[in-house]
């Protein structure tokens, strides 16, 4: 394969990922600005009558709901990913850089144990006792992502921390902070970026699946996943109320995955 050909193919995949993710992302972030007044409720599950995509299970305009329904999914997923790293980064860095075996055990062993619990199960368990809102869902999804993220940070940082450069910095009397953040932290950025892409895709999956199962959302919330769930009863009469939000979720998750895959390939692995 010639260089120009592979470059062209790569640019193609990059723009494909961008194009797929752009539609749901723009709708999610800018949609609420254009949604306007909800207007009076009409008959449920009808087509036409001034409603571009018909009405939903309680007679709201489907297009209006589509405009409103992406924000929670996207923002909850972004917050959960950021929160997971907020905990995983210090835990992973400290346990990679410490010389105290015991401290490392105290930090990492509980996480190994947490890894055993299936993620959706943990979310449902908590949801059966508390009724978490969107913030609670973000916290929960972050929590189930911490063990794996911390292990990856620990593995990547441990490899860098064993290099002679770090020993030299230590002997020079550099502060722990400068070694950990300035050198080790900077060296593992690429690994972290790759992991963040995979993690964001997984978080989007969990957040939307939890919302579909009714965790962290009101039963009539304006949320794409909730729309898919609640409007299923009218699938025979009014498929648009289900198909449009489902397609948007597919585009969002697929596009994110394709985009990160293309971006990371350019930066890393292959020259």
């Amino acid at each position: 394969m010639t260089d120009t050909k592979s470059l062209r193919r790569h640019t193609g995949r990059l723009s494909l990922g961008l194009a797929i993710v752009a539609v749901p992302l723009l709708l999610a972030l800018l949609g609420p600005l254009f949604a306007g007044d909800p207007g009076p409720r009409a008959v449920s599950f009808t087509l036409g009558g001034g409603h571009w995509l018909g009405t939903d299970f309680v007679g709201r305009d489907v297009w209006g709901q589509v405009l409103l329904g992406g924000r929670t999914v996207v923002l909850t997923a972004l917050a959960a990913t950021a929160l997971a790293y907020l905990v995983a980064l210090p835990v992973g860095l400290v346990s990679a850089l410490t010389h105290l075996r015991r401290l490392e055990d105290v930090l990492m062993r509980p996480l190994d144990v947490l890894l055993a619990v299936p993620s959706l199960l943990l979310i449902l368990l908590v949801a059966s006792v508390f009724s978490p809102g969107a913030a609670g869902l973000a916290l929960l999804v972050a929590l189930v992502n911490v063990p794996d993220a911390a292990r990856i940070v620990r593995a990547a940082a441990g490899e860098v921390a064993a290099r002679p450069a770090v020993e030299a910095l230590r002997m020079q009397g550099e502060t722990w902070w400068r070694i950990a953040v300035g050198h080790v932290g900077r060296s593992i950025l690429r690994t972290l970026a790759a992991d963040a892409g995979i993690r964001l895709t997984g978080v989007l999956y969990l957040v939307s699946t939890a919302a579909f199962l009714g965790v962290g959302v009101a039963p009539d919330a304006s949320d794409w996943a909730v729309m898919v769930d609640r409007n299923r009863t009218g699938l025979f009469v009014q498929p648009w109320a289900v198909v449009v939000p489902a397609l948007l979720i597919v585009a969002l998750t697929t596009g994110t995955n394709l985009l990160f895959d293309a971006v990371l390939e350019k930066k890393g692995r292959r020259p």
């Binding site: 489902a246 397609l247 394709l258």
Partner: peptide, 25 residues
């Protein structure tokens, strides 16, 4: 490779509902 990469990320409920709409309805 492209199809597996794309489908890999899709939540089951969204894929399922679309398949039901096309294949069943």
């Amino acid at each position: 490779s492209s199809v597996t990469l794309a489908v890999y990320a899709v939540p089951e409920f969204a894929l399922g509902v679309l398949l039901v709409t096309v294949l069943a309805l």
